[in-house]
């Protein structure tokens, strides 16, 4: 059952991701991406990281994708501009294919040392919070500065001068 769930979620992830990049309609792309994020959230839950799963949904589905949808709805009066030239398309598929095969081959060669079937860790809110506000307190505070600057920058950009 676990295997089945993993396969179902993975299939959903891959299919929706493909749909993101292949849909002609940007709104479909956004909806597919939301679906993709939900399936990834499912993976997170099954990897015993429920907090991240929920945060993932809140941040991505709740905020980021709304922003995308917003922009698309406001901006896309004309139809989508479509894909690049077929030469570039074939080149891209080729290059990415080579990349993927190479990475998988590198994994098979054992260049990447992977643990197998280890015990999982409890991704509870309190333990994660302890790591986040203990070991990573300073990066966390710095990220708030990043946010602040982003807010200021976006407001400045958004203003019609």
């Amino acid at each position: 059952m676990i295997l089945g769930l993993f396969c179902f979620l993975s299939l959903l992830t891959i299919m929706s991701a493909l749909s993101v990049i292949l849909s002609r309609n940007p709104v479909y792309s956004v909806l597919s991406l939301i679906l993709c994020f939900f399936s990834i959230a499912g993976h997170y839950i099954l990897l015993s990281a429920p907090f991240l799963a929920v945060v993932h949904i809140i941040v991505y589905a709740g905020a980021i994708m709304v922003l995308f949808l917003f922009v698309i709805m406001l901006m896309m009066r004309t139809s989508d501009v479509g894909l690049t030239s077929w030469v570039k398309r074939i080149g891209s598929f080729f290059v990415v294919g080579v990349l993927g095969v190479t990475i998988v081959a590198l994994m098979q060669r054992g260049t990447l040392v992977l643990p197998r079937y280890l015990a999982s860790v409890e991704g509870s809110v309190s333990s994660l919070g302890r790591v986040l506000f203990g070991q990573y307190a300073i990066p966390f505070e710095l990220s708030t500065i990043l946010f602040l600057s982003a807010v200021v920058g976006v407001v400045m950009l958004g203003k019609k001068s």
Binding site: I14, A17, L18, V20, I21, P26, D80, V81, G82, L83, T84, K88, R89, S92, F93, V95, V96, G97, L99, G100
Partner: peptide
């Protein structure tokens, strides 16, 4: 890889 292809082939 899918994301990368998307970046490469989409113009939007």
């Amino acid at each position: 890889g899918i994301g990368l292809i998307g970046v490469l082939i989409r113009r939007n």
